[in-house]
Design a protein around this nucleic acid. Structure first.
Length: 268
DNA sequence: AGCTCATGGCGAG
DNA sequence: TCGCCCTGAGCTG
């Protein structure tokens, strides 16, 4: 269940494992059988991520993958074992195999269609070609909450529910404030922090947002284990004490997603 | 064995 | 705003 940093890792990992030589492509589950047959034996020559979209390039054909909420890639060494469960896509060469389960999208597209996906996405903090000004144009004119705007992939690509909650906490911004009430300085700080946090997340493969001075160790509290694997301030910490002020973290359903924030540190 | 939940996103109304 | 799609893990019983 990935945000953009995972997709950038997957692009690199696929290229490392399968790039530059023929790859066996199959769909054990059968739901991508036609596409797999077209790609089988061809050479993977490019891989890139844009927001939460992953693109694997085979000449003029691009394999477009979106993991959605449940999708997952798993990599292994050596030849692939007999399939277990529902495997939409399997990539394999002599040294590596990779299985893709549960994606919301797994399809073959043309270069023009790939460009169209890019065109409808906002700037991705993990891409060198990202233009944060484009996001600011939308945010600074919008009556929507900053919480909704940060999750809107047309505004900003790659940020999900964890990074949204955490970056707002780190900048003491209430998730309920309207985008147009954000100052330019606040936006610049958010963008800069997302670039830094997400690069860190891409490097380590998990989301860590707690500053050294607020770690449980530094605060004299017992260490915690977060079930999503990273150290965070508010995400999925409903009713637990804020790591900074001790106030109970709040949660509510906001546009069909769970929102988390500290009502004291992030006052409207 | 059967629920519920999840780091997403789409289309209908 | 709601329902729905994809799948598996972690509960409960």
């Amino acid at each position: 269940m990935p945000e953009g940093h995972i997709l950038h890792r997957l692009a690199a990992e696929n290229l490392r494992a399968f790039g530059g030589r023929p790859v066996a492509v199959a769909s054990p589950q059968g739901r991508f059988a036609e596409g797999a047959a077209l790609l089988d034996g061809r050479t993977l020559d490019a891989a890139e991520a844009d927001g939460k979209h992953l693109f694997l390039g085979f000449g003029d054909s691009w394999l477009h993958i979106h993991l959605g909420l449940y999708g997952a890639f798993s990599f292994g060494a050596g030849p692939a074992p007999a399939p277990v469960g529902l495997i939409r896509l399997r990539l394999e060469n002599a040294e590596h195999h990779a299985d893709l389960r549960g994606p919301t999208t797994c399809e073959l597209i043309t270069p023009a269609e790939k460009d169209a996906v890019h065109a409808r996405l906002g700037p991705d903090p993990l891409r060198a070609d990202a233009d944060p000004q484009a996001a600011w144009q939308r945010i600074s004119r919008s009556r929507s909450t900053v919480a909704a705007l940060l999750m809107d992939q047309k505004v900003l690509a790659g940020v999900g529910n964890v990074y949204r909650a955490e970056v707002l906490f780190r900048h003491a911004i209430s998730p309920h404030r309207a985008g147009r009430d954000l100052s330019r300085a606040e936006w610049d700080a958010i963008w800069g922090d997302l670039v830094e946090l997400m690069h860190g997340g891409a490097a380590i493969g998990r989301i860590d947002t707690v500053r050294p001075e607020h770690t449980p160790e530094a605060m004299g509290r017992p260490p915690r284990v977060d079930d999503h694997g990273g150290e965070v301030y508010v995400y999925r910490r409903a009713a637990m004490p804020c790591l900074v002020c001790g106030t109970e973290i709040r949660t509510e359903s906001h546009a069909a997603r769970n929102l988390f924030w500290c009502p004291r540190c992030q006052q409207a």
